[in-house]
């Protein structure tokens, strides 16, 4: 798994490439947590190159969402497709997360 972090105004975008599972989920969780320090908790996780997430990845995402919302912000997903979408549907995460077609749509959603 590879992670990238970029700032779009006051929104932090974390790009995830590859697969999130038990061996990599903590890295994702730590990266999201690190971006929250001293800034508005507005996050987007870009899933365009995310191939798969196991239950460990779901737990990392959930931890990030809870922390962002606790700080008055949110964690939103962009470009979710294929098997990742299926796992999110099956686990009911699509009912509690805001999901957008691409990063631009997810970032601009914070303006509305």
């Amino acid at each position: 798994m590879e992670l990238s972090v970029s700032q779009h105004g006051d929104v932090c975008v974390v790009g995830v490439r590859g697969s999130v599972d038990g061996s990599t989920a903590m890295q994702l969780q730590d990266t999201v947590a690190a971006q929250l320090t001293g800034s508005a908790a507005r996050m987007v996780v870009d899933c365009a190159e995310l191939e798969y997430t196991s239950s460990a990845g779901l737990r990392a995402l959930l931890a990030g969402v809870k922390e962002c919302r606790r700080q008055g912000g949110d964690l939103r997903l962009a470009a979710v497709s294929g098997g990742v979408r299926r796992v999110l549907d099956l686990s009911g995460f699509t009912g509690i997360l805001r999901i957008y077609s691409d990063v631009d749509a997810a970032v601009s959603s914070y303006a509305s």
Partner: peptide
């Protein structure tokens, strides 16, 4: 993905 999880050490990251 399955084989990576089966073959990886028994860590419990992501809790």
């Amino acid at each position: 993905h399955l084989m990576r999880m089966i073959d990886s050490p028994a860590t419990h990251a992501g809790e």
